[in-house]
Simulated scan of single mutants.
Amino acid sequence: MEKKQLPLLIVAQTAEHIPALRHLYLEARKKAFTWLPPERFQLQDFDVVTAQEQVGVALQANTPVGFISWWPPDNFIHSLFVNPALVRHGIGQALLQYCLQRIGRPTTLKCLQTNTPALRFYAAQGWRIVGSGEAEDGAFLLLAYGH
């Protein structure tokens, strides 16, 4: 029997969301970035990565299950992470739409080339590859939406 999915609400981040988002970010990166050593990821990384950014939080039963962060001056999406147990339930797509309703065009983001599930996700959402480069974590593709 299939479990019924709880309703999803996306809201702007508040201070009460931060402890849960720290844990979600830590666990999601350990699961997604298997080519990097897990000890590289720290609980406080969330605070550093999202500092001064806009953050949307996906909630189910008032519990954070994903987030997206972006830097409005550059129309740049910096992070999109979903609880690993809830991947492929539409949460990432809902977060992306939430952000795209609030950010200018063209919108860009970087995705590591080794993160093939994320690249497939963005391609399915209409993003196009417009460039590439090297970062600390490896080669990335620059993706754009709304060109």
Rank of each mutant, 00 (worst) to 15 (best):
S132T: 14
K110T: 10
G90N: 05
V48F: 14
P19V: 11
A118M: 06
L6C: 05
H147N: 09
V49Y: 08
V49I: 13
I18H: 04
T116K: 12
I77P: 00
A123G: 08
W35D: 06
I103V: 12
L109V: 04
Y98R: 10
R29G: 05
S132N: 14
L86T: 02
K30M: 14
R120T: 13
A135M: 09
H147R: 11
E2L: 13
T107L: 04
S132P: 01
V48N: 08
V65C: 13
K31R: 08
E53D: 15
A94S: 14
F121Y: 07
Y122V: 04
L43Q: 09
P72A: 14
L9I: 12
I77Q: 03
W127I: 04
A32D: 08
F121G: 09
T107Y: 06
R102P: 00
L112D: 11
A12F: 02
Q97M: 04
E134W: 12
L143K: 07
V48M: 09
I91E: 02
H89K: 14
Q60C: 04
Q44E: 15
A94K: 08
P84M: 11
F67M: 09
S132K: 15
C99G: 14
A85V: 07
L26D: 05
G126M: 09
G104E: 06
V49H: 11
A28P: 07
F46M: 06
P117Y: 11
W71H: 14
M1P: 11
P72H: 07
Q113V: 13
V82N: 02
P73L: 00
G146P: 11
E53L: 13
